[in-house]
């Protein structure tokens, strides 16, 4: 291979793969994506049967479904979008900035959870406690009336 061959001509319009290997890969990835989707659906229905709550087991299943979705995203970008066939430097310019999402998700979801906690204190609107307050306030008025 001559010195220039890797980059010039700068665009390779021919397929990187021979036909047979290509069709095998597409078939494999299609089957993988379908199977992962079916597993996700089964887990989704399992959540439905267990009741949509915040029990640890339900959260665990949701975590598994999220990881399966990330696997699907990997297969779509690496094989269907052929990102896996590009040179490493370019792959890194796409993948590394996406690492921002790790901070992004943790920070904002934690913020949401903090909002919920604040809401449920007496400093917030405390929606769950409204009824109890009304019940408690009734004897207080009676006390005032006695005086």
């Amino acid at each position: 291979m001559s010195h220039d061959s890797a980059a010039s001509p700068e665009i390779s319009f021919q397929s990187h793969h021979d036909d047979k290997a290509f069709y095998r890969t597409v078939k494999k990835v299609t089957i993988i994506l379908s199977i992962i989707t079916l597993i996700e659906l089964c887990l989704g229905l399992l959540i439905y049967k267990m009741g949509h709550g915040s029990a640890t087991s339900v959260l665990l299943i949701k975590g598994v479904i999220t990881i399966l979705s990330l696997a699907k995203a990997f297969y779509i970008t690496a094989y269907f979008m052929h990102l896996g066939d590009e040179i490493r430097n370019f792959v890194m310019t796409i993948v590394v900035p996406l690492a921002l999402f790790i901070w992004f998700i943790i920070a904002f979801l934690a913020d949401g959870a903090s909002w919920r906690d604040l809401r449920n204190t007496s400093a917030g609107s405390k929606p769950d406690a409204t009824k109890t307050e009304q019940v408690q306030s009734a004897p207080a008025i009676e006390k005032g009336a006695e005086k």
């Binding site: 291979m1 700068e10 390779s12 896996g84 066939d85 590009e86 040179i87 490493r88 430097n89």
Partner: peptide
């Protein structure tokens, strides 16, 4: 998935070629 094979010692950034081995349009689509 096989990252494109690149000969050792290729000077990507010395000019005259795409350092990412991609056309401008495809890179910008990414």
């Amino acid at each position: 998935m096989a990252t494109a094979a690149v000969p050792v010692g290729t000077k990507w950034w010395s000019g005259g070629k795409s350092p990412f081995n991609l056309s401008y349009g495809k890179m910008m689509m990414w």
